[in-house]
Design a protein around this nucleic acid. Structure first.
Lengths: 112, 112
DNA sequence: TCTAGATACCTAGAGGCTCTAGGTCAAGGC
DNA sequence: GCCTTGACCTAGAGCCTCTAGGTATCTAGA
């Protein structure tokens, strides 16, 4: 087994890894992820909802995160909270290392 | 004017910026760029020709690089050498800064 | 009152990129 | 005779982001 669906690759412009990074800290819901991403990165990463929600569905489909619906108080919209699965924790660890390698590689080309 | 074709964005998985980085060092041809990219990054960035040649055409179309054909010796294939244009130098400078910002942003999310 | 914004979810389709999987042609090694 | 190397090229698949909407409720402001 293994080598099945290699997980999100930041170096190829896939922001799924950043979502894994946030969800790895604590359970989080989509709308919150959008805001946290913007806040944590000082606005540098500012993904529209049309990017984040489909990405969450892919990550869940691929078994890297697991979601559950949480009903909120009267008239407040319900939320879908996500947490990392074991596969997601692994993908995050792998992704972090790939990111380190890619950073060094790009820096060596760009001379930073 | 300006704000026309913002140049390649590494954070979105566009490798054009890495090509600009190499060509910015010295005049280079496609086949050489493929090899240099692999060598410089220790194999981490290993783009197939089917990625690099179309990227070179886009960069040239967008006025960031300029190419010229160089005939080689008897029976050796000719090469198309590329150099940065002024716009390309600017795009490289902008891209480098964006890359620095994105690196910091991703690190702050991934906690590296 | 009416509008706008925030909260929270969703989707269809366009656009644009990488990558696969080929192809061309000549020289040189085995 | 065949494979590898050098050097270029392309069509199409695949996949992702992003645009531009939509739903629904509540609150604030003009």
């Amino acid at each position: 087994m293994s080598e099945r669906g290699r997980g999100p690759d930041l170096s190829r412009g896939e922001f799924g890894l950043l979502i894994l990074g946030l969800v790895g800290r604590r359970e989080m819901y989509g709308y919150e992820i959008v805001a946290q991403l913007r806040a944590t990165t000082d606005g540098v990463v500012d993904l529209p909802e049309g990017t984040v929600y489909p990405a969450l569905r892919r990550l869940e489909r691929d078994g890297l995160i697991a979601g559950r619906w949480v009903e909120m108080a009267e008239g407040t919209p319900r939320r879908r909270y996500y947490r990392l699965t074991t596969a997601g924790e692994h993908a995050l660890a792998v992704g972090r290392e790939e990111w380190l390698r890619f950073k060094a590689a790009a820096d060596s080309v760009l001379g930073s």
